[in-house]
Amino acid sequence: MARNQEALTRIRVRTRRRKAASTVAISMGVIALALVTVPSVWIVAQVAWKALPHMSWSVITTPGVGLGGGLENEIVGTLMITFGVAVVAGFIGVMSGIYLSQFARGRAAGLLRGASEVLAGIPSIVVGYVGYISMVVTFHWGFSLGAGLITLSAMVVPYIAKTTEVSLGQVPSSYVEGAEALGLKPGQILRTISLRSALPGIATGLIVALAIAVGETAPLLYTAGYSQNLPHVALTHSPLGYLTYAVWTFYNEPSTRAVQLSFDAAFLLIVLVLALIAASRIIVARASRHRETA
């Protein structure tokens, strides 16, 4: 150790500088942490600040009229689209996840998995463009719930598939082996053991996917279209409104009421998304507590 006395001296001289550099680095890290947390809090607070003073029941219970009225048509539309995505993307996504975790092998599995992940990375407006050209124009569906929810589903299926696959993969193999030893058939094992214990994870993935669907705009603009009437329960030939559209069209209008509606819609969106995130967290917390005690 003392072989190189000279070097040791040099190091001692540098120590103070190194320590100082480290402190600076740590404080920059803390600043970075602040920068990461500030925008989300700022946005939520700002939107609430601008929306709450004039929020009233009538905003939720009356449909839009020109640049005024309420957001009932958009709220109902968003709920319909989200419900549709839950059904369509939920089914395809969960089934896809089951296949990837239970049956898929080798290269084919890699290909399917890869395709799914890549699909999730396609810019939303590109998916929207294709949805418009194919369903709205070529299939003559017109602006419609069907075109909108299929376009959105294409975007969130990969997410649901991934969480389902991962959740199923995390089912302790001892559960499955035990069930096999008891003579349960594969179908029963999947239903009663694997899916049941993976359920919290699957539900969480589905909920977060819905949160993404609630907040999307670009894929819906040219597929679901827009209408200030209350949406009809029809898959095709009936455009409908949704909350993100209200934010996008009203914010820039030279009317106080329109800008207020824009913030109201943004506020409702944030509340919906927060509620969904909270739900997913509660499910995870419950599931992990359950697992620990089990």
């Binding site: 939303s124 705009t217 993100t244 996008w248 914010y251 824009s262 998304v273 927060l274």
Partner: peptide, 9 residues
């Protein structure tokens, strides 16, 4: 989770 349009707003 904050929607893109809300960031824009």
């Amino acid at each position: 989770g904050i929607p893109s349009v809300v960031f824009g707003l």
